[in-house]
Design a protein around this nucleic acid. Sequence first.
DNA 1: CTCTATAGCGAAACCGTTTTCGTTACCGTA
DNA 2: TACGGTAACGAAAACGGTTTCGCTATAGAG
Lengths: 343, 343
Amino acid sequence: MSDTVTIYDIAKVVGTSPGTISKALNGRHDVGDTLRERIIETAASMGYRPNVHARGLKMKKSWLVGMVYGEDESDSLEHPLFLPIMNAFKRQMEHFGYELLFLSQHSKFIGDSLLSHAFSRQVDGLLLMNVAEHATRSFVTASNAIPMVACDAIVPSLSSVITDNIMASKEAVGYLYGLGHRNIGHIAGPANPVTVGGDERLEGFVQGMHELGLLDANQYVVRAEGWTPNHGRDAFVKLMQTHPDITAVYCAADFYVMGMLQVCRDKGIRIPADISVIGFDDVQWTAFVEPGFTTFRQNKEQLGTVAANRLLAAMDGEQSIDIVRIPAELVVRGSCRNVKWHT
Amino acid sequence: MSDTVTIYDIAKVVGTSPGTISKALNGRHDVGDTLRERIIETAASMGYRPNVHARGLKMKKSWLVGMVYGEDESDSLEHPLFLPIMNAFKRQMEHFGYELLFLSQHSKFIGDSLLSHAFSRQVDGLLLMNVAEHATRSFVTASNAIPMVACDAIVPSLSSVITDNIMASKEAVGYLYGLGHRNIGHIAGPANPVTVGGDERLEGFVQGMHELGLLDANQYVVRAEGWTPNHGRDAFVKLMQTHPDITAVYCAADFYVMGMLQVCRDKGIRIPADISVIGFDDVQWTAFVEPGFTTFRQNKEQLGTVAANRLLAAMDGEQSIDIVRIPAELVVRGSCRNVKWHT
DNA sequence: CTCTATAGCGAAACCGTTTTCGTTACCGTA
DNA sequence: TACGGTAACGAAAACGGTTTCGCTATAGAG
């Protein structure tokens, strides 16, 4: 069985030429109906699978798209967003006949080796997730040869789809303001390595505060030095030292909330009685601690799907580059207290 | 620039034949040293990338391995094990020149369509993760045509690498026994759909208890009906109703512990004062709740690497099929109490 | 000096498709 | 009857590599 049957084998059985087999199988119009049926039937019965290499060689199309992601920071691998986005992307691409190649990016290969592989494989498109800052250059220069779209990031001169972090931050401060909070702290993402998500959330925080007349917002910001719970803990400690008057904290990541929890437990700070908290990402445990945490849920499904559609368009010749922002949803649980009637 | 330079282009520049270019680039011995150097140089300067399709067509080797995983249960996507294992596997395969194709498996395609793709792409090997029970058949029949290895699962008549769940369970009961516990409950994985991990942990639990002379172990088992926190919560409630005398619970998943936490909070049950708990998987938050949870950490790095090595061997002609079990590590935190001196 | 072995290179077949182009047969129309 | 048009198929080139085989020098041995 199954020693790779080719169109020649089918041709022999049916008694026609290989070219005709190809045409019949591809739905071309210049082959008779009865013959076509016979061909399709015997092809199926013989277990014929078109050889992708031969086809790709001739057609210069691989029906492959590469998913590149940075694997430097161990965060990214286990990042709660990564897999769901990837999966939505994959589902959509598959729907249009594409398969996915996995291309990770060690920092030692500054993207060049990765692009080599991409070219060799003749990938039809590239999805960039979480690419290291210093590697974007080579991608951008290659982007006229092979269509790309960035997801969960913004790469200049490339189409990008990303959560609307600024909007979310504004919503966060607006929500807290509405509950009566005025002294609101923000634990922001690290300055080094900088991430667009972290920066945008910070930017949105400051903007939102300003629009509400809270002009010293920058005073209430402390940047964590990484994305882990420990970093969040340290940042919170610092925030409490410099601004013991805060009644609410908006965290750029749920992991930060995790770190905060430890401190609060140790110092007897109650949530939300003593301090209100909003997180970001809606990781699984936020719903299962007591109280459940109010946090932002990124629309991972939509992020992946939109990225896929954008890439499909680009592969179809669409030239324009644009940034599409997907709104995040504020999931309200029990970590924020209404202080309006208690002051 | 860069409109796909081929060996013909190089041949024109160097002034030799395409065949010689190929031989020089592949380190064949029948080409002069000076000429070889010149060829390698100009190839590099022209930005030559070998066309994988042409090569694959001739050599009948794709340097691609497929990673197939079931995506039915939303668990699997976000499963804390999946990505780290996959990444270790990938790193090892890449080291030997292979790239990874992502093949997920919707239940509607009962594996056949997936195998079609695998054949079309001429993948050199397949890693099976989390494949649905009903789909294993088609894989097994195809396994003589294309090498496979299962990971985090056991597929009969295929090489498999999996965590040593039985050993772990025995260690769990042994540890609790050593702390003085005798009435030990077990929240086991669901019977439907059954998973080898869940079953083995159950089996190990019963065996371990028996070996310690606790012969009614089966009485203290309740199977959850899924893998989510809510399923764990329900199972725990059931366990407490039928066996209020238990002093310790061994959970087949950390998610179950998550569910337990809610119940304990509601009913004022203190951990570990009133009840001791051991989980499985070492998900991130286990270290950040108070008390930190004692749990098993699977060696994801090794699982992935060993699976890769096993697959490489199989692709190299190794015929034997075997099951290799990777030990899990008991991470002791604060959720188990020593009751020896208090009874 | 002649013969043979070998090193170094080119020619060409081959891998499995797709696609263009030509050929034939047959239809309908004038 | 003659002619143009079309439907249905085959022949063959092309895609970009790899590899076998044959050829020509040159070196070394007798």
